[in-house]
Amino acid sequence: MIVVGAILLVLGWLLNIHVLWVLGVVLLVVGAVFWLLGMMGRPVAGRRSWY
C-alpha cells in the first residue's frame, strides 16, 4: 500500500493530476498507520502483520 501510494504520488505530481496526488498521499498515510500498528503487535483487520 505504501509503494502504490508513492507511485500515485509521483505520477500525480509529474502528470499534474491532483486526484492522483491526493490518492497517493492518502494511501501513504494509511499504509504507514497499518505498518506501525502491525509493528506494535496490534492486530490490523484480524491479522497480526499487515503486508
Rank of each mutant, 00 (worst) to 15 (best):
M1T: 06
M1Y: 08
I2T: 07
V3C: 07
G5D: 08
G5A: 09
I7V: 15
I7H: 07
L8S: 12
L8G: 08
L8D: 10
L9K: 12
L9H: 11
L9Q: 12
V10C: 11
L11S: 14
G12I: 10
G12D: 11
G12E: 12
G12T: 10
W13V: 12
W13Q: 13
W13E: 14
L14P: 00
L15H: 08
L15E: 14
H18K: 12
H18N: 11
V19T: 15
V19H: 14
V19M: 14
L20A: 15
W21Y: 12
W21V: 11
L23W: 13
L23P: 02
G24Y: 03
G24K: 06
V25I: 13
V25F: 08
V25R: 05
V25G: 15
V26I: 14
V26C: 10
V26L: 15
V26K: 05
L27I: 02
L27P: 04
L27Q: 04
V29A: 15
V30E: 07
G31T: 02
G31H: 02
A32T: 07
A32E: 04
L36E: 08
L36T: 06
L37E: 04
L37C: 03
G38Y: 01
M39C: 05
M40Y: 03
M40V: 05
M40D: 05
G41K: 03
G41C: 02
G41I: 02
R42W: 04
P43G: 02
P43L: 00
V44M: 01
V44T: 02
A45M: 05
A45K: 01
A45C: 02
A45G: 01
G46S: 01
G46R: 01
G46Q: 00
R47C: 03
R47Q: 08
R47E: 08
R47D: 05
R48K: 05
R48D: 04
S49M: 05
S49C: 00
W50M: 09
W50S: 11
Y51C: 05
Y51T: 04
